[in-house]
Structure formats: structure tokens, C-alpha cells
Write a protein that binds this DNA or RNA. Structure first.
Length: 542
RNA sequence: GCGCCCGUAGCUCAACUGGAUAGAGCAAUUGCCUUCUAAGCAAUAGGUUUCAGGUUCGAGUCCUGAUGGGCGUACCA
């Protein structure tokens, strides 16, 4: 519809001899009495044309030639809005086309042909995923699904580093528990990982290897066992949340294939790298930073920025049109350096997109809860899903804008009742299926539904709401904000329940019942498609 | 000190990237179950969008300053 409106408005604008085509913005007015679609184009043109916006609006309207099967009226309102009202025929035509599209309804082609890579979770394997990781995981996966619905091919990638101090301490922690469980006196490493899962890994190791490792003064086998077990555990957790990675990328491979060295030498050729105080520096001041940045420490070890730059170069070398990173607010400082590095190497920084989400505050027993993986003071995602299931878990992470500090009240999430908005959507879907089951026994329809029997206000409102799924998906995908889709689905569920109360199906004469069932079925389809993108189930019974 | 994010109903948050009378859920009050799932519907109440200026036809949204909070600001990741 928007394309059609744009087209007819554009045709009318030809009368003005504009230097450049203005962008025609169409939106659904908040207040339905204003119409079904609205544009502010006349107000936008007021300045360049130096003329009264309402008068411009009048001229535009006079110049519009429209199909009255699609548009029933055009009005000018307020300071110069042009409001369009959809024709009845259009509603029914469109409803029929949604039914036709079925599980495909809502897909767009805006990213067609694009290869997109999205990197998320990327937790190093030092312990189970916590509720803190949950927002990253669910946000990343859902943005990936949204991009897929706009036509892109998306690869989900998990980036990790199994070298370094963290992992050494992990290995030593397992080693200590291993010896402890075999009754050998030992000292638990300072700053070691205190969680119960470390003991479980030690137990597994005893099962596998018995006492073979008692004499080992090397912590490597312990680290390796821990990594294997923890990754398997992380993978199980992700699978439970309906998340499947396409690729795991080990930072270490960047050292093995020479990418790290190559990045430094290429930057050095450009005169952006120099040595000072025994360290290797990147001239980030050339990119507007106050200080230069260390790439390689005087110990010879790179800082994390260097592999980060090499990793992003590697992604772009793989031919992706767009690489999306999901970062917590604490990692935000790293990415300007990565972009500087990437541009210096001759890549297009526009191809890197960073989604920053704010931290999750866990509220437990009415109090904010501070977590630490090392101190084993955390709520794992698995524990959370044991309590509330994966649907509620995903929904809670998605229901708010990534940009706001999310408060996750565990008590509230546990409550399966009214406080829990995910059920509102699922309940609407289950209700529809309940009706469909009953209708199947009662009626046997033949021929096509006569959709033009849908004349009640609740019916019209519902139909118009259903149309907006593609727009909602597009907007959520463009902004990388899944919560927009949730807000939309709430509108759908709400429009449906109003319809449900105002318009009965059972007991109605056959043609009307058939038309209403078609509408209910379409609603279920829209809810189902939306919930699929959110990675949440659409139950047929509750 | 400097940089980024945020401040909207009692609470948790929306507001389609500058549009028309700022909206939902929870909490409060009031109606509605012998007919398709009351995990619901309908309605009432609740606001100087933290404060002070500015930009323009028009600001919760943009700019400046103040203020409160979160996160950064390392030869930690």
C-alpha cells in the first residue's frame, strides 16, 4: 500500500518543479480517526516553496489520481497532514492475500541477496551462561531472525578465546578440585573459579582418567577438559533457548594464520604504527582519539584490540556485506579502535554495525543482585529456564529496547499469571485454535469465504492491524530493535480479543461464520509468524 | 576531568527516528462468566516527559547548560 501511495503522491508532486525529489514519509496515525495512512509532505515542502502548508496540501490532493478500489477518501487535516482512508475492497483484497501468503506473510526483500554475519554471545568458556549473557544471546539471535525475514542470508558466529590468564586460572581451579576429590592436600588458586561446576568437571575427569593426572604439574589437560565440558554446557543452554550457532571462531586461529602479524605490518606501512617504551602503538590520535593505543605490550603480548581488528578484517575478507556485533555497554570503548583499524586497512567501516545493549539488573527477592562468574555468585540461564521456561526467558530479554537498562525481576518472570505479558500473545493464539477445533465439528464450508461480510468495527480494526506485520518486521529489523515487533504483536492480540468479545463465531449463520473463521485463522497466522521470529512457541492449547 | 547510554503515570517500560489529544502492563477503583479459553473484555483514576533556556509551522524526540543514575576512560578482556 505504501508503495502505491508514494507513487500517486509523487505523480502529483510533478506539478511543483522541485529541484530535488523530497522523501515521501508515510505513517499510520496514532489516532485512527485521522485515517489509515498519513503524510507530512506538504509541511516539508512549506519551506522550500515558501508557501502555506495547507494550501500546498490542497494542491497535492487536487493533483492525486487514485484507484477507488484502494483509497476511499483523502483529507487535509491539522497543520497540513494529508490523510488517506483505505477502501473497503482494499481491506478484503489484502486480507485474502495474507491468507494466501500464510507462513511467508511478513517477509520483505529489503536485504535480499545480502550476506550478513552476526557475532554474539562470544563468552569465553569459563563457566555456564548467566542471566547476564542471556540478553546478548537472545538479542543476537532475534536480530538474526529479523534480518532473515528481510531476505538476508545470516551466519551466526561465536567468537572465543581459549588462551590467556582466565583460562589458565580455570585449568588450575579444576586441577585443585581434582586433587581435592582424590584426597590429596592442595591449595586452591587465588582468584580461582569457585563454582560447583568446577567440581563436576573434576569428577568427570576422575571418571575418565582416574588418578593418571595426579603427578601432572601441567594444568593444560585440566583446562582442556574444562573447556570441552563448559562449551558442551553452553551449547546445550543455547539449544534450549532455540539458538543455533553456524560457526565458532577461535581467536587463536588469527595467530596461526598470520593475520595478526599482517595487520601490524599493513598498518606500519601506512605509517600508523610506531614503537615506544618497548610497546607497539597504533596512532589512534589520527582518528580523533586523545591518546594512541597500545597494540602489543612491552611483554610481547598483544592487547585485545589487535586480534579484534584482525578478526573484523577476517570477517570482511570472507565477503560479508554486513557484520553485526552485539556488545554489552562495557565493551563500547573497544569498537572505535576497531573501526579505525578497519578503515586504515582499506575496508569500509560502514559494513560493521554494533548493537550496544545496556546491562541487565537482576532483581531477586526485591533486591538488585550483583553477579560474578568467578565468585560463583550468579543465576545461570539454565536455572532461569528451569523456573520459567525458554519462552518467558526470551520474551523478557526482548520486550524492552536494547538501549534501556533492563530490570529482570525473577519473581515476576516466575509468575505464570497476568504479570507475564508473553502469555497474552500465546493465549490469543491458543484461543483461536480452540475456536477452530470447535468450528470444524460444527460447520462444513464449501467455496471461498465472503470476506466482505466483515463489517463490524472490531473486525475492520483487526484486519488493518494484521496488515502491518511487514512494516513492523521491517522497522524492527532496520532499527535492530526486536521489542518493536513485540509491541506490534501486542496490538494484534489486543485487537483480536476485542473482536473475540464483540463478534461470535459459533452459532452464526454459515457465511458469516466462515468469514470470521478466515479472519481468526489469519490472526493466528500473523501471531505465529511474529512469535517464530521471536523464537517463542505459539501453542494451540494452553 | 573527559566520552557513551539513560531520566516519561506509584512501579516496569512504549511512543514507528521531528508530527495531530504522550500510550501499554502491573498496582488502585467499578462493571461483565448457565453461549467460542475470565491467563480475558469494557470503563475510571493516575503526567509541568528531571530542571532552565534555544532551534521551527510543530520538541518526550535535535542543540546548549544544570542535575541524578549506569558504563567506560589501562602496556585487563
Amino acid at each position: 500500500m505504501n508503495e502505491y501511495l508514494e507513487e500517486i503522491i509523487k505523480a502529483s508532486l510533478a506539478q511543483f518543479e522541485l529541484k530535488e525529489q523530497p522523501e515521501i514519509k508515510l505513517e499510520a496515525p496514532k489516532d485512527a480517526t485521522h485515517g489509515d495512512a498519513s503524510t507530512n509532505i506538504a509541511m516539508m515542502l512549506a519551506k522550500p516553496l515558501r508557501y502555506n502548508p495547507r494550501a500546498i496540501a490542497q494542491q497535492i490532493v487536487d493533483g492525486i489520481i487514485y484507484n477507488d478500489r484502494k483509497i476511499s477518501s483523502i483529507e487535509i487535516a491539522g497543520p497540513g497532514f494529508i490523510n488517506f482512508r483505505f477502501a473497503e475492497d482494499y481491506l478484503f483484497d489484502e486480507l485474502a492475500s495474507i491468507i494466501e501468503a500464510g507462513t511467508e506473510f511478513g517477509k520483505t526483500t529489503s536485504s535480499k541477496g545480502k550476506n550478513i554475519q552476526i557475532e554474539f554471545v562470544s563468552a569465553n568458556p569459563t563457566g555456564p551462561l548467566t542471566v547476564g549473557h542471556g540478553r546478548n544471546a537472545v538479542l543476537g539471535d532475534t536480530v538474526a531472525r529479523l534480518m532473515e525475514w528481510t531476505g538476508a542470508k545470516v551466519d551466526r558466529e561465536y567468537y572465543f578465546n581459549d588462551a590467556g590468564r582466565q583460562m589458565r586460572v580455570l585449568g588450575q581451579s579444576v586441577q585443585a578440585r581434582y586433587l581435592e576429590q582424590l584426597g590429596i592436600e592442595t591449595v586452591f588458586p587465588e582468584g580461582g573459579y569457585e563454582g560447583e561446576y568446577i567440581k563436576d568437571i573434576a569428577t568427570e575427569l576422575i571418571k575418565d582418567k582416574g588418578e593418571q593426572l595426579v603427578e601432572s604439574d601441567d594444568w593444560t589437560p585440566f583446562k582442556e577438559k574444562a573447556e570441552e565440558e563448559i562449551f558442551a554446557d553452553i551449547d546445550r543452554t543455547l539449544t534450549r533457548m532455540n539458538i543455533h550457532m553456524d560457526n565458532h571462531f577461535n581467536e587463536h586461529s588469527l595467530y596461526e594464520n598470520g593475520d595478526i602479524d599482517s595487520v601490524v605490518s599493513r598498518l606500519r606501512e601506512k605509517g600508523l604504527v610506531y614503537e615506544a617504551d618497548g610497546a607497539t602503538w597504533f596512532k589512534t590520535t589520527e582518528f580523533g582519539k586523545e591518546k594512541d593505543t597500545v597494540l602489543i605490550k612491552s611483554t610481547g603480548e598483544p592487547t585485545y584490540r589487535l586480534p579484534d581488528i584482525a578478526y573484523h578484517a577476517n570477517k570482511l575478507d570472507r565477503g560479508y556485506d554486513l557484520c553485526i556485533d552485539i556488545f554489552g555497554a562495557d565493551h563500547i570503548a573497544t569498537y572505535p579502535d576497531v573501526l579505525s583499524g578497519i578503515s586504515a586497512l582499506g575496508y569500509d567501516p560502514e559494513k560493521i554495525d554494533v548493537i550496544v545493549y545496556q546491562f541487565v539488573t537482576i532483581v531477586k527477592d526485591g533486591q538488585p543482585f550483583k553477579m560474578s562468574t568467578r565468585k560463583a555468585n550468579f543465576v545461570t540461564l539454565d536455572e532461569l529456564m528451569d523456573e520459567v521456561g525458554s519462552d518467558v526467558t526470551r520474551f523478557f530479554f526482548l520486550m524492552r529496547s536494547p538501549n534501556t537498562h533492563l530490570e529482570f525481576d525473577i519473581a515476576q518472570a516466575k509468575e505464570a499469571g497476568e504479570k507475564n505479558p508473553v502469555f497474552y500473545l500465546q493465549y490469543a493464539h491458543a484461543r483461536i485454535h480452540s475456536i477452530l477445533r470447535k468450528a470444524e465439528e460444527e460447520y462444513s464450508f464449501s467455496g471461498k469465504a465472503k470476506l466482505n461480510l466483515l463489517q463490524e468495527e472490531a473486525e475492520t480494526t483487526l484486519i488493518k492491524t494484521l496488515f502491518k506485520l511487514p512494516v513492523a518486521i521491517q522497522s524492527a529489523a532496520d532499527a535492530r530493535e526486536p521489542h518493536r515487533l513485540i509491541n506490534y504483536l501486542n496490538d494484534v492480540a489486543s485487537a483480536f480479543t476485542s473482536f473475540y468479545h464483540d463478534c461470535r463465531i459459533m452459532g452464526m449463520e454459515e457465511d458469516l461464520a466462515q468469514a470470521r473463521i478466515a479472519l481468526a485463522k489469519t490472526t493466528a497466522q500473523v501471531l505465529n509468524n511474529g512469535l517464530t521470529i521471536l523464537g517463542i512457541t505459539a501453542p494451540e492449547r494452553m
